[in-house]
Computed example of a mutant assay.
Amino acid sequence: MIVILFRILILIALALILYTIYKYYRNPLRKLHIAKDNEQFYMLDESADSKKNIQLVYRGCLFEGEKYLGAAENSFEVVNISVFANEPAELRGITRDDLYFIEKELLIRYPYAKIEWKHPINKLLITPLD
Rank of each mutant, 00 (worst) to 15 (best):
V57I: 11
F84H: 09
R59E: 07
R26E: 09
P28C: 07
N74S: 15
K51G: 06
Y112L: 08
S75H: 13
I121E: 06
K123T: 05
N38F: 05
Y58Q: 03
R92G: 02
L18E: 01
H33M: 13
L106M: 15
K114T: 15
L107G: 06
P128S: 08
Q40D: 14
H119Q: 06
I34H: 04
E46F: 05
R96M: 10
E39Q: 15
A113R: 11
T20R: 02
L5G: 03
T95Q: 03
I126T: 13
I34Q: 12
P120M: 02
I10W: 14
S50I: 10
I21P: 00
A85V: 13
I8K: 14
I126R: 09
Q55V: 02
I121F: 04
G70F: 11
D37N: 10
D97E: 15
L32M: 08
E64M: 13
I108S: 10
L9C: 09
N53G: 14
E64K: 12
I126C: 01
K118F: 00
F63N: 01
D49N: 15
A89L: 04
F84A: 04
W117I: 02
S75P: 00
F84V: 04
Y42P: 01
I21M: 11
L44N: 07
L106Q: 14
E90T: 04
Y58L: 10
R109G: 06
G70M: 14
C61F: 00
E116F: 02
Q55Y: 14
L11N: 11
N27C: 06
R96L: 15
T95W: 00
R7W: 09
P111Q: 09
L18I: 08
I4G: 10
G60R: 03
S82C: 02
E116N: 11
G65L: 03
Q40M: 11
L124T: 01
L44D: 04
K67S: 07
L129R: 15
L29A: 04
A72E: 10
A15L: 13
E90R: 01
G93M: 05
E116W: 00
I115P: 02
N86G: 12
L11H: 09
L29Q: 11
A15I: 12
L11V: 05
H119R: 07
L56T: 06
V79S: 01
M1S: 14
V78K: 06
L91H: 01
E103N: 15
V83S: 02
K114G: 11
E105M: 13
K23C: 11
D97L: 14
F63L: 13
F84W: 05
